[in-house]
Design a protein around this nucleic acid. Structure first.
Lengths: 219, 219
DNA sequence: CTCAAATCTGACGGTGTATCAGGAATCGTC
DNA sequence: GACGATTCCTGATACACCGTCAGATTTGAG
């Protein structure tokens, strides 16, 4: 790789320079402040000036490193893209047969809920922006969930070949549906508790439907 | 009802007056403009000044009728609360047994997708605001979905009593999970097509999982 | 210590928010 | 159809945030 090519894929400040150590540090600080504020306030009320204040710097500095607030959030979201990897392992490396399969479904459900819980503030925005048709966020969401969906699809395809699943079932659509269920329950977890539904019962239902949906087995 | 009590539940302008015909008309115009703009732009970029411009009036007029942008969107969302009613009828008045049951599940899926499609711009915001913990939107979302969830719960409870569903299954949690699946697939419908999954296959998977989840039958 | 590169910020023009006093339209009444 | 009262609307305004740039400050290599 030429020096030119390397520089091209490196971080750039708004004026085109490649940031040094100090620069990268303030950039990181700005990012973590963005994440922190997003935990407490709505996306609509996330202001550059607040991020700058939190980072002990000025708004102008923020614009040195990001084009706008969305760019910062987008980067935070980008960091989640690899998070899907551990879920994929879980899906591929565990047995989906019988009681073991139910155990796998439960573990996957827990892992999903946990992933969402740890990143709920960002994932909320990713969800909204994707629904609004923002292609950048859509891409991130795809990268995060696509691996998981594909892994599930393969497992489902296996059960279909064994005639455990209906012949006309589309494994990819089925996988996407199950992932949707997981994502939505994870996103609205707090809402269910508020609604009077016990969290562990919710988990059981999700895991059970996941198991049935993947394997074609009965409840 | 006393005049005082009636006035108390009537519409009020910001200065406390009860609006007359002209006032209600501009109010409606502002609401429809809000909805219209929300179709094309993100919630984050929804500005009072744009709504006012669209309605051919001034920002000050907007504030005559709404405290802020959120109040207007909240009212638009409130109008959806009764939309759940037709779904409830569908759930209660149709058979869930055998092939008929599968037909019912398909109809419900279609009705759900249609409801979301017709109101996607507003429902996006409801979803986000609910996830962000906004209780006003949470309430609306609950009213919209709670009836449907309760209706599904009753049907599930029936199948549980017939030993078609596991004894330890919580019908309410199961219903909430299925509604989550419906809501999320509906919200991200366009995303799936973009992702290369055929819309009709998606619908089939959702309907099938819904049928299985409600009745406990096999695929 | 010196100086050039890297980093930061004060200052500014532009846009949106939210309020209020007062101007304009409407309506009932004579 | 003119009057006054009521309803409705808006210009003016103070304030907040955005996004940019020139230049001040800091850093660190020599």
């Amino acid at each position: 790789m030429t020096a030119r090519a390397r520089a091209a894929q490196q971080l750039r400040a708004s004026d085109g320079r490649v940031p040094g150590r100090r620069g990268r540090a303030t950039r990181e600080k700005l990012l973590s402040c963005t994440a922190e504020i997003l935990e407490k306030t709505s996306y609509r009320d996330l202001k550059v000036i607040d991020i700058a204040r939190c980072a002990g710097t000025s708004p102008a500095t923020f614009y040195q490193y990001f084009n706008d607030v969305e760019a910062a959030v987008l980067e935070l979201a980008g960091k989640l893209q690899e998070e899907g990897a551990s879920l994929v392992e879980l899906i591929r490396d565990s047995s989906w047969k019988g009681a073991r399969g139910h155990q796998t479904a439960t573990s996957l459900t827990d892992a999903f809920l946990d992933l969402w819980e740890r990143n709920r503030a960002i994932l909320r925005v990713v969800d909204l922006a994707t629904a609004e048709g923002d292609l950048h966020f859509q891409n991130i969401r795809t990268h995060l969930l696509n691996e998981v969906t594909l892994a599930l699809r393969d497992v489902i395809e296996g059960f279909r070949e064994q005639k455990k699943q209906p012949h006309d079932l589309d494994p990819m659509a089925q996988a996407a549906t199950l992932v949707s269920m997981l994502a939505h329950v994870a996103a609205h977890r707090y809402g269910f508790e508020f609604w009077g539904i016990r969290s562990d019962k919710m988990r059981d239902s999700v895991a059970r439907l996941l198991y049935i949906g993947v394997t074609g087995a009965r409840a």
